[in-house]
């Protein structure tokens, strides 16, 4: 039975269906055909096909039996490297079925592991290399320690381009009997930020309203999914009411469970629309960047964001 969730329904199942990473697909396909697969490291932004490619590999290798020979883990969801090791150990204990001499372990978001945990992971990879191949995925390969990088074949996935997104949209709209206006297509591409999952989710959400998809519908969906009240937070700050601005900020973050990083992203985009002098916009952007840096580094996002909002109060005074 086909899934009703389009990202799953239209997930590529064979190499030729994977859109936007042609170079990588060519190489990986020949590795798979020769049954000579090293450990792989897939690096690249979200929604560019890393998990999909891993799934295609195991389906090619194991056919119907792929589920028995495939373990999928997410490093940021598992509580600590020990859990990961335990699961790997249990999975790797039995030999693979069929004529492929190894099983596949896919570790998503491997860059969420600390360098120490990655050292432990490296040991695990070595211990089970006779029976298992690892496919690691990460957003930034620089966050993966060198010893792991040197043990893997590295593939860098790129953001999907406009033509790639268009291909996907055309395919789905044909199958689902919906129509998308060219302007809507353009908006979908902008909203996707090169992320295939996101563009499909946007499309499906919009199509649940109407099968005739125009720009207006798309922008409604995009804006309703955006942290709406960020502008309100900033407006309070600019008008000098820090207390209200702060209250609203906490509200936005909690009620809509928006992460600090997403709030920062929204603020950074909104700066250009604010009624302040150009040089102040640059100053605010600089401060925003600094704040984002601290949040990414692991600071308490609410404290860092309050500090940022306070500088918007100053900007409101023209300083």
């Amino acid at each position: 039975m086909a899934s009703e969730i389009w990202t799953e329904k239209y997930r590529p199942t064979i190499f030729s269906e994977l859109i936007g990473q042609e170079e990588i697909v060519k190489k990986v396909q020949s590795l798979t055909n020769s049954l000579n697969i090293p450990h792989l490291l897939f690096a690249g932004p979200a929604g560019t096909g890393k998990s999909s490619l891993a799934l295609i590999i195991v389906k090619e290798l194991f056919g119907k039996n792929w589920k028995e020979n495939y373990l999928e883990l997410n490093a940021s969801d598992e509580r600590g490297i020990n859990i990961v090791r335990e699961k790997v150990k249990n999975f790797a204990r039995t030999k693979s079925l069929g004529n492929v001499p190894f099983k596949i372990i896919f570790l998503d978001e491997a860059d969420a592991l600390t360098p120490e945990a990655q050292q432990a992971l490296r040991r695990t990879m070595e211990n089970y290399s006779a029976t298992c191949r690892f496919i690691l995925s990460c957003n930034y390969s620089s966050k993966i320690i060198d010893p792991i990088q040197s043990r893997c074949a590295i593939f860098r996935f790129k953001l999907l381009e406009n033509k790639d997104i268009k291909k996907i949209l055309d395919k789905i709209s044909g199958m689902e009997k919906i129509s998308i206006t060219p302007e809507a297509e353009e908006l979908l591409y902008e909203g996707s930020e090169g992320d295939c999952r996101r563009v499909i989710n946007l499309l499906q959400s919009t199509s649940s309203i109407s099968p005739l998809i125009n720009a207006e519908l798309i922008s409604t969906i995009i804006s309703s999914a955006k942290p709406k009240d960020i502008r309100v937070v900033l407006d309070y700050a600019l008008s000098g009411d820090f207390q209200k601005s702060r209250e609203k900020l906490l509200d936005v973050m909690l009620k809509e469970s928006i992460s600090g990083q997403d709030v920062i992203k929204a603020i950074q985009k909104e700066i250009w629309n604010l009624p302040v002098e150009p040089e102040l916009k640059v100053k605010l952007t600089e401060k925003t960047g600094e704040t984002e840096f601290h949040i990414v580094e692991g600071s308490d996002p609410f404290i860092q964001l309050q500090s940022l909002v306070a500088s918007f109060v100053l900007a409101g005074l023209g300083k």
């Binding site: 969730i5 389009w6 998990s51 969801d77 959400s205």
Partner: peptide
């Protein structure tokens, strides 16, 4: 679990996909 992504990522997508 269903969509082969992490929970954090799923939460981030939530507002977009909620309607579905």
């Amino acid at each position: 679990q269903y969509a082969h992504i992490g929970v954090k990522r799923a939460l981030k997508e939530f507002p977009t996909i909620e309607r579905v």
